[in-house]
Simulated scan of single mutants.
Amino acid sequence: MKIGALLPRSTFHPLLHHDFLQGIQAYLQYQQIKADMLTGNIGYGTDADLIAAEAEKMLLENRVDLLIIYADQDTVKKTADLAKALNRLIILVHSGAKYIHDWEPHPAVLSHTLNHTIQCRLTGLYAGKLAPQAAVCTSYYDGGYSHSHTMTEAYIKHGGAIAYNYVSQYKVKDFDTTPLRQFLQTNSDVQTLLALFNGDLAHCFLQQLQESEAAQHLQIFGSPMLLDETLTTTYGTLQLPFRIIGYVPWVSTLNNHQNQLLKTQFQQYTGRDANLPGMHGWSTGIMLGHIYHTTDTHQFRAKDILTAFYDVTLDSPRGHLRMDPDTHHMIAPAYLVQTNEAHEPEVTGSTALTLQIWQEIVQEQSNMAPSSGWINTYLCA
């Protein structure tokens, strides 16, 4: 099996594409799957012509059997149509922080995302049950993606009211939570935040907020990246007087066989602990392994692979992975976590009803007017 992979850069998470790729490689090596892996660089994933040119090399010159692209839907349509003409499969991977695109589903594309819009909707619904009003807090960058809308929309529809909006700058040197802290001091009845941040912005937000006078009374409902368990190991310790609650796609402490296998094999292969991009890569490897072992039934024809996936359930570190036949998106369970003082997440619940949530998102989004947002793949900026 010959696999092509077009991978992005990320300023927020410099090892993102390395960890993702090594997750795939670790799985293929462990399963002794004979595969050649060819890689190409697509910058920040914003140039559709660059992606198309690199894909053309992979598909026509290198004649890969299938192509993995780490990019959002906005820049992949031209490439997807080329793959359709060749009847070759594209596995499109990203965080799932945007709504489904108007060209999806596509007869040559299988999307394997981290389902961030699903988790943010679940978090918004959960917050709506517990808090009558909240302040929405996000960065200029994080706020430009659909996950922000789906969290706040779910919160409002479940009875919550937005009392304040705080939007930070997207660089740490300019980061200042003073307006938010002043609002909280003068509006003591608002003690709930809906917060969406990632990377150094997430750490800076929590670090400044933990020093505010209102901190000990706060409850925060966060996006998956705000709950990323590697924040403290990457950016420094935290001592939080509040708890952060939210749904996430995965945490390293999940107690299932595939997760234990991931942690062991990723450590052996890379010398580093498994993380979210590594898990995403490993789970992509599981999909590749299934395709590899069923080659006789599809001969790498995209249409036949997708048809076969209709009835397939794969065990992954996230739990069961299944394809939604209506959108060609892989869907997995979501886990409710709560952090302690040191920002360590503990799983307090889970739901396997994520397909239903996804279908609600797709249905509601199809009735919405066009909206604007960043064309960057989330985290690739």
Rank of each mutant, 00 (worst) to 15 (best):
Thr79Phe: 13
Ile42Trp: 10
Ile305Leu: 08
Tyr235Glu: 07
Leu184Gly: 02
Gly23Ala: 09
Ala85Leu: 15
Asp228Pro: 00
Gln365Thr: 09
Leu114Tyr: 05
Asn255His: 06
Leu254Asp: 02
Gln182Ile: 15
His257Asn: 07
Ala83Gln: 08
Ile357His: 00
Ile3Gln: 02
Ile305Thr: 03
Pro179Lys: 10
Gly281Gln: 07
Leu7Cys: 06
Leu227Pro: 00
Ile69Tyr: 05
Val362Ile: 09
Gly40Tyr: 10
Gly124Gln: 00
Tyr70Leu: 15
Ala55Tyr: 07
Leu227Asp: 03
Leu38Glu: 02
Leu379Arg: 03
Leu114Arg: 01
Leu16Met: 14
Ser168Ala: 15
His257Ser: 06
Phe183Asp: 00
Glu360Asp: 11
Gly40Gln: 09
Asp142Cys: 14
Asp326Pro: 01
Asp228Val: 12
Ala274Leu: 08
Ile51Tyr: 07
Trp103Leu: 09
Leu59Thr: 01
Asp102Val: 13
Tyr378Asp: 07
Ala85Thr: 13
Asn187Thr: 13
Ser316Gln: 04
Ala161Glu: 12
His320Leu: 11
Gln216Ala: 15
Ile33Gln: 02
Tyr164Asp: 03
His94Thr: 12
His293Val: 05
Tyr27Asn: 01
Thr327Trp: 12
Ser366Trp: 11
Ala83Leu: 12
Met225Val: 12
Pro179Ala: 09
Met323Val: 11
Asn367Lys: 11
Gly144Gln: 12
Thr178Cys: 07
Asn198Phe: 14
Phe221Glu: 05
Leu50Cys: 03
Gln216Gly: 09
Lys171Glu: 14
Cys380Ala: 15
Ile68Gly: 00
Gly349Asp: 08
Glu56Met: 10
Ser371Cys: 09
Pro105Asp: 09
Glu104Cys: 07
Lys263Gly: 06
Asn41Ala: 14
